[in-house]
Write a protein that binds this DNA or RNA. Sequence first.
DNA 1: CAAAGATACATAAGGAGCTTATGTATGTCA
DNA 2: TGACATACATAAGCTCCTTATGTATCTTTG
Lengths: 117, 117
Amino acid sequence: MYLCPMYSSELVKGTLKTIVLRLLTEHKEMYGYEITQRVKELTGGKIQITEGALYPSLHALEKDGLLTTETMNIGKRVRKYYSLSKEGKNKAAEKITELSDFLNTMRFLLDLKPAQG
Amino acid sequence: MYLCPMYSSELVKGTLKTIVLRLLTEHKEMYGYEITQRVKELTGGKIQITEGALYPSLHALEKDGLLTTETMNIGKRVRKYYSLSKEGKNKAAEKITELSDFLNTMRFLLDLKPAQG
DNA sequence: CAAAGATACATAAGGAGCTTATGTATGTCA
DNA sequence: TGACATACATAAGCTCCTTATGTATCTTTG
């Protein structure tokens, strides 16, 4: 039985920040755990962002001024909501364009026929 | 003026071996330098494989039994031609399928509309 | 004909971005 | 009450790449 294998980690490597920025262009604010769940849900479990990867990335994006944060108390627990700054919106658009272009290029390479190469 | 910027290296990271295996499914044998030139040509310079990345990868693929080599003398120079082994053909098909699936998933994430997320 | 650049291989130090492991704490369900 | 989910965080270590360096031959051009 074939159940939702994850992609090899080296393949997903490098796309994390773009995925985060992409999600935040559609959702005004999201918190870390929510992002991991959303991606898992949207990809049928094929991409599962680990917390060890996500939190340092979020911190880096915030440090770079691309994300702003707002802390909320949910009961006795703390949630840290992230939103795109103005600069973040620009960067998001840029990274999304680059990734989209990259996907096209890789698709082209995969679909090559001998006659073309 | 906007001339063929390369993709950020972290984006391309992880796709090198699959690209090599892919090219070798269309060309019975290729040598290292040829691979770098072919990829550069096919991608309009957007992916430029460095020799520091390629040669160790080729050696690893050979060590794993996926590639076989044949050394040829061109004048006084040596060329090392790489071909897919039987195992390499299977692995190539596997990696290509995975990458293709991954491209679809990433495309889906990029094309999300608010109503869907 | 000498210098520059292309062809062709190779290896090694170092960095970025992950994985894996660990830690803390609260909420929920059987 | 013990397991699992929610929710944050950090650190050691790994992989794959970049950057730098090395060797050598072939070709083009001033």
